[in-house]
Design a protein around this nucleic acid. Structure first.
Lengths: 192, 192, 192, 192
DNA sequence: CTGTAAGCGAGACGGTACGTCAAGTCTTTAG
DNA sequence: CTAAAGACTTGACGTACCGTCTCGCTTACAG
């Protein structure tokens, strides 16, 4: 284990982390991404700025953490459906999740990520990977034995249009769209 | 006509706009997006800050303008190829263009756009639309009579993976990827 | 002669000078000294800034001019009173004049004058001298043959308390004060 | 007591206040009043602008503070002289003090004061009052039992000519002038 | 039970940039 | 040559956050 729980000195107040994360998310919802500032989080929560910086190296780190924690709470998609409908279910579920607050937060995080490569990496690892891996699993089950790179590209072909609509086009991720996408995906998988 | 040549008062120094735009792009390349600031542009060009603010309401406006103007200069993709290869040529060309400086600039602009909805709208209209329309034309020629919404979705399915790799995955937009994408696109179009 | 009226080219619009002066005074009254700016005068009158600068070298020059012109319109004090009461009448009159708008304007001009020695000189010459000379005349008539420097000092002794109250103490220049001052002045003159 | 020493948070760096005040006075001497700017003080001292604004709300506040602190250091006039000469000594001393740098600074502060009533009030309270009270004490000792208003007017009659010469006439405050003024003052006091 | 090693609130601090304002000058076209 | 319009340079304004740095105080485990 890596911890060495550091039992010397006054322990950190566990509530604080949660409070700060929540404040960051609240600010995001209420007044948009630009209004998230360490200053604002500190004021809103009553936590001293220094305390924030002790726990998160950057503003970025806090924001990422706030989001990742929230996203972890999201229910995983059911995988108990039949092998055929599994893909469609995943796509529908993803679209549904990204419609609403969660989508907006993802956009905010991407804003940050586009300004800082390290943040992007961390963002992917802490958050995006999970879903991506799930999708990969679905595809593997449908077409076993596909080589790695091919699989990754397939994943991109499916997630790409969703994120494109979310980030660039700001277009609705409705069921109709999800189904067209799913249909195309199935066809592509079949042909591979 | 939209001009109304406004011949009253001292005319704006035409060089300035160009200088400022160029400085913004230079800063972007040299030190990354975060280093673009009105202050820096002013100092670098010798143009007074006030003059910059007279021409562009925000830092954002300048950045957008700088990029849009540059992008307009990019050569259009050749459309003289046969109807079949046209789509592939478009996808390959787009991927090639977005590899390198142009891609980096687009990412920077998206960073801005994700923080400001109006900016996003303007970004799309001033820059993205052109290419999007071109792709739409290609698809229309291949499958005439398709209804509007269907067509738009098709466009999303093609551009989506490209932008996803550019923005989110930061993955290479190489020829292999372009060709897989093109192949899938052709199949989808055929099935429609 | 100084004229050579310069009849070539478009003649100056005579109204303008008056308009600008008036605007300056209006601004002074309405929003205080700090709000007088060439910019504001130009906007308010519709006169181009350049035109203002063509007629008055500085903002200061305009302000001074505006005030001097107004002050010239003030009625001179009656000198027809008997030699004894003449001094008292002068002091009372001066106090009365400096109570109200005129006093406020004088304070504004002094604000300017304290920042620019040349302005102070001009201010004295164009405006203050007149009254000062009048007072000097009164004193001369009462004590003929006094040497110049002595006379000047006497004038300072009389005007000093008035301006001190106006500028520094911001205290009322009421009749009671005027009369104490006059009484002291008479005594001093008598003793000289 | 009024202190409440405020021991919370990082204490202010005491040197800074002194440095800033000194810089303000230096600028005043070196390049005149107009050259005093927060920007210049910040640069010259190496103190961040924000720090200056944290301590002094306005440029005016800093200037006033700078001056008041300096003026407090000026030696008080000796009051040990005989009751008769006391007044003369005070007047001579005041004139001497106001000749030179101190006078120039006072003029600069009055320039500011004439543009801002609140500043004038503060200027009087923080600086002028002290000397005024001293003079009042002298007069009271010479003519005990005089009513308040009468006393105040007497003070105006004495200080008035001095400030008039300082501010308006820009005339020398030499000993000759001081003595004429003192002589008049004594006569007036005697007659009261 | 007492160091000593954190954590914590408060708030000062050096920076960097923001967007605004006014002064005084310059450059057009129109009269 | 004057006027209106408005661009331009210069220099300062006051504000907002960033991330860092002290203070005085408060927990906790360790000797």
């Amino acid at each position: 284990m890596t911890q060495t729980p550091r039992s010397v000195g006054r322990p950190r107040n566990a509530e604080h982390s949660e409070l700060a994360r929540q404040a960051a998310l609240d600010l995001l919802q209420e007044q948009g991404y630009a209004s998230i500032s360490m200053e604002a989080v500190a004021e809103r929560t009553g936590i001293a700025k220094q305390t924030l910086y002790r726990r998160w190296k950057h503003k970025r780190a806090l924001i990422l953490d706030a989001f990742a924690e929230q996203a972890d709470k999201l229910p995983m998609l059911p995988t108990s459906v039949g092998p055929e409908e599994e893909l469609q279910a995943f796509i529908r579920g993803t679209c549904r999740t990204l419609t609403g607050q969660c989508g907006r937060t993802n956009r905010a995080l991407m804003a940050e990520a586009l300004q800082s490569p390290e943040f992007l990496v961390e963002f992917r690892e802490r958050h995006l990977t999970k879903r991506r891996r799930q999708l990969r699993g679905i595809l593997e089950r449908q077409r076993p034995g596909l080589e790695d790179q091919r699989l990754e590209t397939l994943v991109d072909l499916i997630l790409g249009p969703i994120w494109y609509r979310l980030l660039v086009q700001n277009a609705p991720l409705d069921e109709a769209f999800a189904d067209v996408l799913a249909q195309q995906a199935l066809a592509t998988v079949a042909q591979t």
